[in-house]
């Protein structure tokens, strides 16, 4: 019962997010970046359903268009990190030896950076751009996919189906891509579902620090940054922006947990709350 609620809630939020991102142009009451200088830092009105920010920027428009940026960055960063990490980890696990050693040392070095630090550094140096943001977020995120894929491959590579493929004369590349990678997609998919909210949060945090999207790009993190200096007279700007982030992250997290419980037998073993 509760699990069904989780799927409905998570799926609903994610679906709504996608719809909003696609239809932002039709739903938004104003054009992105349009200013209304007469109504700065105003609470919700009929013309501006979620109020206005600096120079009369319409908050609802920013949030609708911000969904595009968040979703785009989240999906692209996970796609890039997931595919790169999976392939590298699978190759390292199957090849073993020097290749494995090199990849895992690289992983160790990147893991020496705490959390977002490496991404902050990269994105600050690359300058504000969407591509730079996606690249910076994937630059460390691939590590967890690589570790996961390598571990899976290590446990799979001596299984009969791999031996059979090898016996039939399949090339190493064919074994990795046709036989091993499809078999480890389940755990990777779960990881990716949790990776998307992680990337959305990270994008928002970087944009909040002023290091994320180029100035003027609608972004939830940038909206919170803008509202932060007006907490006294216009708290709605920061709060609505932050709520949008929290809601999106919540949706993907719920979906990820649902997916994990369905695909991963280990976490299903325990007696979960009814």
């Amino acid at each position: 019962m509760r699990a069904r609620g989780r799927l409905a809630l998570g799926g609903g939020i994610v679906l709504a997010l996608c719809v909003v991102a696609l239809l932002a142009g039709r739903l938004a009451p104003a054009r992105p970046g349009a200013l209304d200088l007469a109504h700065e830092w105003q609470g919700p009105t009929a013309a501006h359903p979620l109020g206005t920010g600096d120079d009369g920027l319409d908050v609802s428009t920013e949030i609708l268009y911000g969904a595009r940026v968040s979703l785009l960055v989240g999906l692209l960063a996970v796609a890039l990190a997931g595919s790169f990490g999976t392939v590298l980890g699978a190759v390292a696990g199957y090849a073993g030896g020097a290749v494995d050693l090199f990849v895992m040392r690289l992983v160790d070095v990147l893991l020496a950076f705490p959390g977002l630090l490496f991404a902050i550094l990269l994105v600050a140096l690359l300058g504000p751009s969407l591509f730079g943001l996606v690249f910076s977020l994937s630059a460390t995120a691939w590590v967890s996919y690589a570790r996961l894929a390598r571990g899976q491959v290590l446990s799979l590579r001596d299984r009969d189906f791999v031996l059979a493929a090898r016996g039939l004369g399949a090339s190493p590349a064919r074994i990795v891509f046709r036989h091993l990678v499809p078999n480890l997609l389940g755990p990777i998919l779960i990881q990716a579902t949790f990776g998307i909210p992680g990337a959305i949060l990270a994008e928002a945090a970087l944009s909040f620090l002023g290091l994320g999207v180029p100035p003027g790009t609608p972004s939830w993190g940038a909206l919170v940054d803008q509202g932060a200096s007006h907490l006294l007279d216009a708290p709605h700007v920061a709060l609505f922006g932050g709520a949008a982030i929290a809601l999106a992250v919540l949706g993907f997290n719920l979906l990820g947990e649902e997916l994990r419980d369905r695909l991963d037998s280990r976490s299903r073993a325990g007696p979960s709350a009814p």
């Binding site: 949060l201 909040f208 992250v249």
Partner: peptide, 11 residues
């Protein structure tokens, strides 16, 4: 887990 720290902070 879902709320970004800067939202919590502002709240």
């Amino acid at each position: 887990v879902s709320a970004p720290s800067f939202l919590l902070g502002q709240l």
